[in-house]
Write a protein that binds this DNA or RNA. Structure first.
Lengths: 110, 110
DNA sequence: GCGGAATACCTTGTAAAGCAAGATATCTTA
DNA sequence: TAAGATATCTTGCTTTACAAGGTATTCCGC
């Protein structure tokens, strides 16, 4: 399994799928979680459009819920398609790490 | 050191800088080396424009050399700027791997 | 009650990454 | 002399990620 061209770009997409898999979450909290994990301050102008794209592609589903305490939140969960896509992403990520490790070790076998 | 937005996209750029650092190389051989390391079949339509951009940005310098045996090759080596950029990339890559590891371990401490 | 801060979501337009497709040229081998 | 391997480059496209800004809700201090 080789890192696809998508992999080289869309690491954020895979990371977000995985966070959602670990428990339903909404955009604003995702923003904080990414920072807490060490991904840096991913701006909302990146996160929200990406969530909408993932939903358009039927990898996640968003459900708007009132909080009684501030504006509504849109909680997202994975679809079966999303689970499959996440699995493929994880394999590609692993392969990318392997390739980078090979590079660091001046290794060309695998 | 947080993975910059560049990092999320431009992993290929860092990988290529590192390969060049390990020894002068030309585009066509780079293509084969990336495949051998496990980066997949990065097309030439990706590699050559990227090399030209790196040169434009003064991170690498290309020197055309005849082979006496086939078309000329353009061997690239790093500039001082390129060395510095590579060091930063390596730190960012390490941070990204750390963040992904945290994610896998459901960990939010760093 | 009013203003500001925090929370929460979204849109528009832009820059850059990576790729597909194809052009060009050299040398070797059949 | 034709085909194939080697070697580089260009044009135009799609997608990623971001900057900048807009909207709405609730809470807190004054």
């Amino acid at each position: 399994m080789q890192p696809s061209s998508q992999m080289l770009k869309g690491i954020l997409e895979g990371a977000i799928l995985q966070i959602i898999q670990q428990g339903d979450i909404y955009g604003y909290a995702l923003h904080e979680k990414l920072a807490a994990l060490g991904f840096g301050d991913i701006p909302e102008g990146t996160i929200y459009p990406l969530l909408l794209k993932l939903q358009r592609n039927k990898l996640i589903i968003g459900v708007r819920r009132p909080t009684g305490n501030g504006p509504d939140r849109k909680y997202y969960h994975l679809t079966d398609e999303g689970e499959k896509t996440l699995t493929i992403f994880q394999q590609q990520w692993h392969q990318l790490v392997q390739a980078m490790t090979n590079l660091n070790q001046g290794d060309e076998s695998s």
